[in-house]
Design a protein around this nucleic acid. Structure first.
Lengths: 99, 99
DNA sequence: ATTGCTACTTTGTATTACAAAGTGCTTTTT
DNA sequence: AAAAAGCACTTTGTAATACAAAGTAGCAAT
């Protein structure tokens, strides 16, 4: 018998971070407010999860403008993509194990 | 754009509970010590996660013996199977979304 | 000058996770 | 018979995590 969870990444256990990462896998970039609505969290809560992902080097921030309004967008890094793919693979292996 | 995590079950966010459930999906029953070694957790920690799963009606406990030694085994309930399958489906949909 | 928006940071609290120690029961060893 | 050990917890205490709510800085619109 083998441990089905040993290769899962602890950072991605959290649903908000998991959601952000999987959203960033298919969107070149997303801004703060769209992400906030998408995940249905408070702005403070989102900010802290984004900070965690950034501290781990999984996402990067880009502060820009739309017209004259500030617009902060987030995108996945190479390292983030790699780590997330490994996590997904671990999930798939776990799922494969139950079939 | 849609929320990739809305159908995930919060109880299964935790890696130990996720591991226990996915192990019980493919094993009719497992005893406490095997589960403890498999998940690599302390006995107290495992006991508390098992209690959470039991409180939610996802697993059931069977206290038995092997020869003369006590042997507590755990198995998945119908409800647990249903909820876990739904969680897996939600995960698969999320994964499908990133491809 | 006030209001509003964005993207936070700070503060405080509740929840969760965990290790370690303790417990009750039984069995095995000496 | 006494001591040690195993099982499956429960209890206790602590650290980490998650979260809401309020506060903040900078800029824009009214």
């Amino acid at each position: 018998m083998k441990n089905p969870i040993e290769h899962l990444n602890k950072i991605f256990d959290n649903r908000v971070r998991l959601g952000v990462m999987s959203t960033l896998m298919v969107n070149e970039e997303i801004n703060f407010n769209d992400l906030k609505q998408l995940m249905d969290v408070t702005d403070g809560n989102l900010a802290s999860h984004l900070a965690t992902l950034e501290e781990h080097g999984y996402i990067k921030v880009h502060k820009g403008f739309i017209g004259r309004k500030t617009n902060t967008t987030y995108s996945i890094t190479k390292a983030g993509e790699k780590s997330f793919k490994e996590h997904i693979e671990a999930l798939e292996n776990m799922i494969r194990g139950i079939r």
